[in-house]
């Protein structure tokens, strides 16, 4: 559906987007991740034909953004960063204006606006001016605006930034609801959002693509390592040195001690090794009671920090 190849954009000396390539297929929801200023917005602006790339190609279906700019724009719904809207316009007036601009025939205009107002749960606020709306409702108007012509592709630039937790969940639900039938790219720097709404994540840092894959794939790609936690009732120092001796353990760190349930250790295993069995046998051999044995996968947060802190 969307093919981005070697996309490059410079602003003066700085390279905002540097040879970024990726593909998004029909029906996918892709999360665009990266710290502020990584080049997410610039990439999205190029896909939506607001900016022109210095180098590289963007292909929407079989249309090129340079040669078929107007056709491409017809297929895309775009919610820019910070939801820019005409503050002195009424909600319905504004949506009617966008509907006209999007060439929706006169006879269908009103019913389409009514439909979209319902989809975005805007019914309560239709009589107000956009400037009077709360941030969450403005965001909905922004989404309604992007959806009104029923585009195949939705590009959403930080759709949940600045919203309160309830609103964030509502907007996420809305995106998921819409996303069943559409291809969506959404950018964010809130990581749980990607896990919550997207099938796939693309991480951009300093204008370069640093990772691309499902969240599980990314977890494996990055460290491929799992952290294990073990709690053993026994003498602290002896236990620690015994754990350290195991082949399936790379390093061990003491965490805390409690008289009832023993000492807790954090264990880092080498790649592709699982120390659980060895730990259990070791405890049995020494007649220690094992009170906890758990593991934690590297979270998206860790991956993100790993890839973007340099």
């Amino acid at each position: 559906m969307i093919t981005v190849k070697n996309l490059t954009k410079r602003f003066g000396e700085t390279v905002a987007v540097n040879k970024v390539s990726f593909k998004v297929s029909l029906g996918e929801i892709v999360g665009f991740l990266g710290p502020n200023g990584a080049g997410k917005t610039t990439t999205m602006k190029m896909i939506t034909c607001y900016l022109e790339p210095d180098q590289g190609q963007v292909q929407i279906g079989d249309l090129n953004i340079k040669e078929h700019s107007l056709e491409v724009r017809r297929k895309i719904g775009y919610l820019p960063e910070n939801t820019p809207l005409y503050m002195d316009m009424g909600v319905v007036d504004y949506l009617l204006f966008i509907a006209e601009l999007r060439n929706i025939p006169k006879s269908k205009k009103m019913s389409r606006v009514r439909q979209i107002v319902e989809t975005c749960s805007l019914e309560r606020e239709i009589k107000k001016n956009i400037g009077e709306l709360s941030k969450g409702y403005r965001q909905r108007v922004g989404l309604a605006q992007a959806l009104i012509h029923d585009p195949e592709i939705l590009i959403l630039d930080e759709p949940t930034s600045g919203l309160d937790p309830n609103q964030i969940i509502e907007i996420r639900e809305l995106i998921k609801k819409i996303g069943q039938k559409k291809t969506i790219i959404l950018s964010t720097h809130i990581l749980p959002e990607v896990t919550a709404t997207c099938n796939r994540a693309i991480i951009i840092h300093n204008g370069k693509l640093v990772a691309d894959g499902t969240t599980e794939q990314l977890a494996e790609q990055s460290r491929g390592r799992t952290i294990y936690y073990v709690r053993i009732k026994g003498p602290k120092d002896t236990v620690q040195s015994r754990i350290q001796e195991l082949i399936s353990v790379e390093s061990v760190r003491f965490q805390e001690e409690s008289p009832q349930i023993g000492c807790r250790f954090e264990i880092l295993a080498p790649k592709d090794k699982n120390p659980c069995e060895d730990l259990f046998r070791m405890a049995v051999k020494n007649d220690w009671v094992l009170t906890e044995l758990s593991h934690e996968r590297a979270s998206l947060e860790d991956i993100f920090r790993d890839l973007t802190s340099s």
């Binding site: 895309i76 775009y78 820019p84 503050m87």
Partner: peptide, 14 residues
Amino acid sequence: RQGTIEILMTSPVR
């Protein structure tokens, strides 16, 4: 200044 130009110029308008 408001950024509304982004919505305007990404709609199919020359």
